[in-house]
Nucleic acid binder design. Structure first.
Lengths: 220, 220
DNA sequence: CAAAATCTTAACAATTTCTTAACCATTTTC
DNA sequence: GAAAATGGTTAAGAAATTGTTAAGATTTTG
């Protein structure tokens, strides 16, 4: 269930949004000022922020600058092109002017929450001799079938989604946490080791590279 | 240079968009019908599609269904909430109604082209022959790969963030303290020394300058 | 419910990185 | 110009990270 933080000081608008989201089964969190929003942002991780611009104490624009990893949809009465452009360029992902249409808001929320590359629709993830099937357990190495466990599959999938890009251990653990509850760094090492052994059985190329002190990546 | 495919049958609008994008140094590709768009999509990989809905032969909506991995911004005269919601839910990433504001279009394009989490957006830090790659934690010197340790990477990153600007030793220690717990001034000296040696292996230019009694900076 | 598969924990070795400390060079201070 | 402070280099030992293995716990499957 996705967590959405609503930052809006107008109580009636706030309530409208909250109800709309709850009907769609989102979990909502409420901030009625910029300072309150910042406090909540420290406490919890959200999947999306709906942000009004004109707020007591700290403005919405300042919040955009501070938030780096959560998508933001600005909901504002400011219709000027300048306001929009500023927000979008400084980090907001979308800008909707009030009054807004509920269905459009929901659609734009869905756009932000869905994976950027709609890889879930892609059947396989390919990289060199590896081909990860979209069935949660099959890896083809040189077209030879290999069975992966759920965790191994999750790890390899994350790595293959961004080849040649380091994923930190914590990030990786975070990304696979949907499938695996209590996998820690030690456990992750074991899984990686097992994965490497399975891959080594069919190809000489070392695919999973360790970046010392950082994490792992799929080797060039 | 990002590649943008413009799909629009109205020639005058098409030209306006094309000029706008070229001024921003995007590479533009032109399709004047849905079928032409599909042909071009097979030939080349684009970073973004600007898509009109009412097209000859194949409609924009059908193209949205077919394209899975490229972000799409719909540019349409249809202002109805239904049209917007349909496009967004079936795969479009944004929807702008005509007539549109040029600056807003450019801003929304930038939103689509930038990495989803702005965190990794600190893409690469370049300075003369040095190129610090954020996404895979490596340093390129004259395009030659060099391995840095976690601490060396952290130090160089801070220095390169503000070239030609002195960072005091304490400030530097503070900035890298997230990655390194008990690194003191003496230790910092050793790391800097090691960094200089690694850089010297590939280039003659002395990059890290010591400011006596103060700290370090990247040399002009 | 028993067997099989998978996962976590823990121990160990191997490896890499970091800090410490010593020594020397350079600059500043008195 | 001598003494003190700062900076650079080096090597060794300490500390941290990683890879591997096996055993026991947990979950899944038949």
């Amino acid at each position: 269930m996705k967590k959405i933080l609503i930052v809006e000081d107008d109580v009636s608008i706030h309530n409208v949004i909250e109800e709309l989201l709850k009907k769609e089964n989102y979990t909502t969190y409420n901030a009625y000022s910029g300072t309150e929003a910042l406090l909540l942002l420290e406490k919890e991780k959200y999947d999306l922020i709906l942000l009004d611009l004109m707020l007591p104490a700290i403005s919405g624009e300042e919040i955009i600058e501070k938030v780096k990893e959560i998508p933001i949809i600005v909901l504002s009465a400011k219709v000027s092109s300048n306001a929009k452009v500023n927000c979008l360029l400084s980090g907001a992902n979308d800008y909707i002017t009030k009054p807004f249409d509920g269905k459009e808001l929901l659609a734009r929320i869905e756009v932000q929450l869905r994976p950027k590359n709609k890889y879930s629709n892609i059947e396989t993830l390919k990289y060199k001799d590896l081909e990860l099937l979209n069935d949660n357990h099959t890896l083809l190495i040189n077209n030879k079938k290999t069975n992966l466990t759920k965790t191994e599959y999750a790890i390899l999938k994350q790595l293959l989604l961004n080849p040649n890009q380091v994923i930190t251990k914590n990030k990786l653990l975070d990304l696979i946490s949907i499938d695996t509850e209590d996998c820690d760094e030690n456990s992750l090492r074991v899984h990686i080791s097992n994965l490497r052994r399975k891959i080594k059985d069919y190809t000489d190329h070392e695919y999973i590279e360790s970046i010392w002190g950082i994490g792992f990546k799929i080797k060039d």
